[in-house]
């Protein structure tokens, strides 16, 4: 048994997370069919969602939060060709996107923070107060 998965010894850490995601979290979103792709980081108090949407200005990104869901919307236009210009390659995405992510807790909408840096969006979504873990003091008597 010990050697049953020996070929995976040097598995890439991202692949490892991928496997963990499938087996543990079972998010209702997480399908690759929707753009943009997101990564999620959790702590006991919040979830950080990151996504790569280069070429947008921060004011062009529309973020809305309702209950357990957060929706990201935006759009990007391709460069318009000037007279006499032509595309040699056209690989970059353009158009509108909308993605809704459902979290396993209610989001404290008033305290959501968003930061956009180098084309990467970082969204911090705190848990609603009622759902945060609480430390219970044990009285000795």
């Amino acid at each position: 048994m010990l050697f049953s998965n020996s070929e995976n010894w040097f598995r890439d850490p991202w692949d490892e997370f991928d496997r963990m995601r499938r087996s543990l979290w079972g998010l209702s979103s997480g399908s690759l069919s929707e753009f943009p792709s997101v990564n999620m980081w959790v702590s006991s108090d919040d979830t950080v969602v990151t996504t790569e949407i280069p070429g947008l200005d921060p004011e062009d990104i529309d973020i809305s939060v309702a209950g357990r869901t957060v929706t990201l919307k935006g759009s990007r236009k391709a460069d318009e060709l000037q007279k006499g210009e032509s595309f040699h390659r056209r690989e970059r995405w353009n158009g509108e996107f909308s993605k809704t992510i459902e979290l396993p807790f209610n989001i404290e909408a008033d305290n959501v923070t968003a930061r956009f840096r180098k084309g990467v969006l970082y969204l911090t979504l705190p848990k609603a107060e009622a759902e945060r873990p609480r430390k219970i003091e044990i009285k000795s008597n």
């Binding site: 991202w14 997370f17 991928d18 963990m20 995601r21 543990l24 979290w25 998010l27 997480g30 690759l32 792709s37 997101v38 990564n39 999620m40 980081w41 959790v42 702590s43 950080v48 996504t51 790569e52």
Partner: peptide, 10 residues
Amino acid sequence: NHRLVSYEYG
């Protein structure tokens, strides 16, 4: 102090 739980991009 966060743990990666889901990823769609590397």
